[in-house]
Amino acid sequence: MSTPLRPRTTAAADWRALGTTVRLVVTDPALLESCNLLLARHLAEVDAACSRFRPDSELTALDATAGRPVRVSPLLAEALDVALRAAAATDGAVDPTVGSAMDAIGYDRDFALVREDDRPVRLTLRRTPGWRAVTLDPATGTVTVPRGVRLDLGATAKAWAADRAARMLADTAGCGILVSLGGDTAVAGEAPAGGWQIRVQDVTGAVDETPAQGSYATVGLRAGGLATSGTTARRWRRGGHHLHHIVDPRTGLPVRSRWRTVSVAADTCADANAASTAALVKGEGAEKWLTRLRLPARLVTQDGLVVTTPGWPTDTREAAA
């Protein structure tokens, strides 16, 4: 989990959207209210385009297209383009065609409702259709989704939305902006002195508390994005099975990884999120893959061992509970 800490001489707003926590921080407190209104409008548009849980969303409407090419909004086309590029960059470890697999493990509604659901699930190995089955023509905004394929943009859409919102608000307001959606953090504009301070931790918890388990680090981010993916959050139990939301496209089941969390910094939050999620799926050797990509990262094993790649800050505070 990545939690932005609020620097002095800034203003922050915290609320919920897209089924997750939202944090907006601005370096000009006088602009907080107007920026927050713009952010709320932006996230509402993203939800209407990309939600897998809304029957009236554009993404859900693709379920009924049965392989016919259809024109989608520029917003959904952009989100799909980001998802498909993430799939290509991660060799399919992050794949938007896992929608049916997510439904099969019970993640077919907002997460707050998933934990309350007691329907049994039957865990079955099922390779996902694969991202290459989806065709997007960015020039025309036309997408083709084969019959029976359900898309899930959960692995990329929030990070992309954070990137898009941070850039838009910085351009509009002319100040430093931080947008965090469920811990996926994007920054734009002029950063505070010392950079945006972000706590990277291995379990969820209050910002001002040391996690009960594992370890945390505080890093300064001046540009781009930072994302943490893990198997310790968004967990639920169903019929004797312990499940979580990171699905391995090769099996259609929750990934069983060497890592419990992976944090990555990159030029964009979308790139950071794709890399951190892919590292969980890749498991053993993911640190070498991230090193080859020259991505600063912090990986934590299931038993709490911290592994970092070149470029990850070494002079930050590290604490073990």
Score class of each variant (00 low, 15 high):
Ala162Tyr: 01
Lys158Pro: 07
Asp137Ser: 07
Asp137Phe: 00
Val143Ala: 10
Val149Met: 07
Arg147Ile: 00
Lys158Ala: 06
Gly154Thr: 02
Trp131Met: 12
Ala139Thr: 13
Trp160Arg: 07
Thr142Phe: 08
Val149Trp: 12
Ala155Pro: 14
Ala155Met: 09
Ala133Ser: 15
Pro146Gly: 06
Thr144Ala: 11
Val134Phe: 14
Val149Ile: 03
Ala159Glu: 06
Ala157Trp: 01
Thr142Ile: 11
Ala159His: 04
Thr142Lys: 05
Ala157Asn: 05
Thr142Pro: 08
Gly141Tyr: 09
Val143Met: 11
Ala139Lys: 03
Gly141Glu: 07
Arg147Trp: 08
Ala139Cys: 04
Arg150Thr: 07
Ala161Thr: 00
Thr156Pro: 03
Val134Thr: 04
Val145Leu: 11
Lys158Arg: 03
Ala157Gln: 06
Arg147Pro: 03
Pro146Thr: 12
Val145Lys: 07
Trp131Leu: 11
Asp137Cys: 09
Ala162His: 02
Val134Ala: 14
Ala139Trp: 03
Asp137Glu: 10
Pro138Phe: 00
Ala155Gly: 15
Val134Ser: 09
Thr142Ala: 11
Lys158Ile: 00
Val143Ser: 04
Ala133Lys: 15
Leu153Phe: 04
Arg132Glu: 14
Pro146Ile: 11
Leu151Asp: 05
Ala161Phe: 02
Arg132Asp: 08
Ala133Gly: 14
Val145His: 11
Ala133Ile: 05
Ala155Phe: 09
Gly148Phe: 05
Val149Glu: 09
Val134Leu: 14
Thr135Cys: 14
Gly148Glu: 03
Arg147Ala: 14
Asp152Met: 03
Leu136Val: 08
Gly148His: 13
Ala155Tyr: 12
Thr156Glu: 08
Thr140His: 04
Thr144Lys: 08
Thr140Ser: 15
Leu153His: 03
Thr156Tyr: 10
Asp152Glu: 12
Ala139Ile: 10
Ala157Arg: 01
Val134Met: 13
Trp160Glu: 00
Ala159Trp: 00
Ala133Arg: 15
Ala162Leu: 01
Pro146Leu: 06
Val134Pro: 05
Ala155Asn: 09
Ala157Leu: 08
Ala161Trp: 03
Gly154Tyr: 02
Val145Thr: 03
Val143Lys: 13
Arg132Pro: 09
Pro146Val: 10
Gly141Asn: 08
Ala157Thr: 05
Trp160Gln: 07
Ala161Tyr: 02
Ala155Val: 02
Val145Met: 05
Leu136Phe: 00
Thr135Gln: 14
Ala159Cys: 10
Gly141Ala: 10
Pro138Lys: 01
Leu151Asn: 06
Asp137Tyr: 04
Pro146Tyr: 11
Val149Gln: 13
Leu151Gln: 07
Trp160Asp: 01
Val149Tyr: 12
Trp131Ser: 14
Thr135Ile: 15
Trp160Leu: 02
Ala159Ile: 00
Ala139Gln: 08
Val145Gln: 12
Asp152Trp: 01
Ala139Arg: 01
Ala162Asp: 00
Lys158Gln: 07
Trp131His: 15
Thr140Lys: 01
Leu153Trp: 02
Trp160Cys: 09
Ala155Asp: 10
Thr135Pro: 12
Thr156Gln: 09
Gly148Val: 01
Val149Asp: 12
Lys158Phe: 02
Pro138Val: 02
Thr144Tyr: 05
Leu136Ser: 11
Lys158Thr: 00
Asp137Arg: 06
Val149Phe: 10
Trp131Ala: 15
Thr142Cys: 10
Lys158Asn: 02
Ala161His: 02
Leu153Gly: 08
Val143Thr: 14
Gly148Lys: 12
Thr140Ala: 15
Leu151Thr: 09
Thr135Glu: 15
Trp160Met: 05
Thr156Phe: 13
Ala162Pro: 06
